[in-house]
């Protein structure tokens, strides 16, 4: 079982590499247009050694961390309030549903105008991209809490504060972890796009800059780095659901 978990992904990655290698050999495209896996590997090593890749990756991760963190610490409480207080739900829900489908990328012109060039507009866009999914998922999770649990709380005379800490927060934790996974992926998608426009560093900038220099091997290094980091971010978020006190969510319906 464990072997399968390791071997099967290795097979799919190997097949991808093989197809890539075959296409570069037989498509007739030059290495400049479609670099081979080996060439990309060499460039990868080059960019690691000279520190460029690390520098850009750190810049991207920094923006994602700040933007995502702000979205989480503001989005979850707002989601809880929306889920618990009907009047606030009526007041804000339509507004949120109106703003939510506007792609964060549509905000780029305004973000640049308001915040200039640099980290702030990128962070703002990342914040927008994960804030709405966090709010909506959290409020849906709160509304889905079984009435029985609130009756138990009333039966044992729990205070409003205790209802929040002993009922609401633990009850929504499994769904919130799922929302974190989805949001971090969206945030990571958006950071690359934001960096192509608003800033002079980060993996998105590196890809754009390499394109301008016609270095498709560097472009592909950037893409691969984005994929690897995205995989790692999802893994971190997923491992939250392995924590014992949230494991019930996988077994209880």
């Amino acid at each position: 079982m464990l072997n399968q978990k390791i071997i099967l992904p290795i097979i799919s990655f190997s097949v991808l590499l093989l197809i890539w290698e075959l296409v570069t050999r037989f498509s007739g495209w030059s290495q400049q247009v479609f670099p081979s896996p080996l060439m990309v590997l060499i460039s990868f090593q080059e960019l690691i050694v000279n520190g460029e890749l690390l520098k850009h990756a750190v810049a991207s991760l920094f923006r994602v961390s700040i933007g995502f963190f702000l979205a989480v610490i503001l989005g979850i409480p707002l989601g809880i309030i929306l889920g618990r207080i009907k009047i606030v739900h009526l007041l804000l829900n339509a507004l949120i549903q109106f703003l939510r489908p506007i792609s964060p990328l549509a905000w780029i012109p305004l973000a640049m105008l308001w915040f200039g060039i640099g980290d702030v507009p990128a962070i703002f866009l990342i914040f927008l991209s994960s804030f709405f999914p966090m709010v909506v998922s959290t409020s849906v999770a709160v509304e889905a809490i079984k009435p029985t649990f609130f009756q138990v709380a009333a039966n044992f005379n729990l205070s409003r504060y205790e209802i929040l800490t002993k009922i609401v927060i633990p009850a929504i934790t499994p769904q919130v972890i799922t929302a974190l996974r989805i949001s971090i992926t969206i945030a990571w998608l958006v950071v690359v796009a934001a960096e192509m426009i608003a800033v002079q560093s980060g993996l998105g900038y590196m890809i754009l800059d390499s394109r301008n220099a016609l270095r498709m091997d560097y472009v592909m290094v950037g893409m691969i780095a984005i994929g690897i980091i995205g995989l790692a971010l999802d893994f971190i978020m997923q491992s939250l659901s392995q924590i014992e006190s949230t494991a019930w969510g996988r077994f209880t319906k």
């Binding site: 029985t148 649990f149 009756q151 138990v152 002993k166 633990p170 009850a171 934790t173 019930w248 209880t252």
Partner: peptide
């Protein structure tokens, strides 16, 4: 009150 389907809090 003892609930028909478990009233235990599943996260505790």
């Amino acid at each position: 009150f003892v609930f028909q389907h478990s009233g235990l809090l599943p996260w505790m």
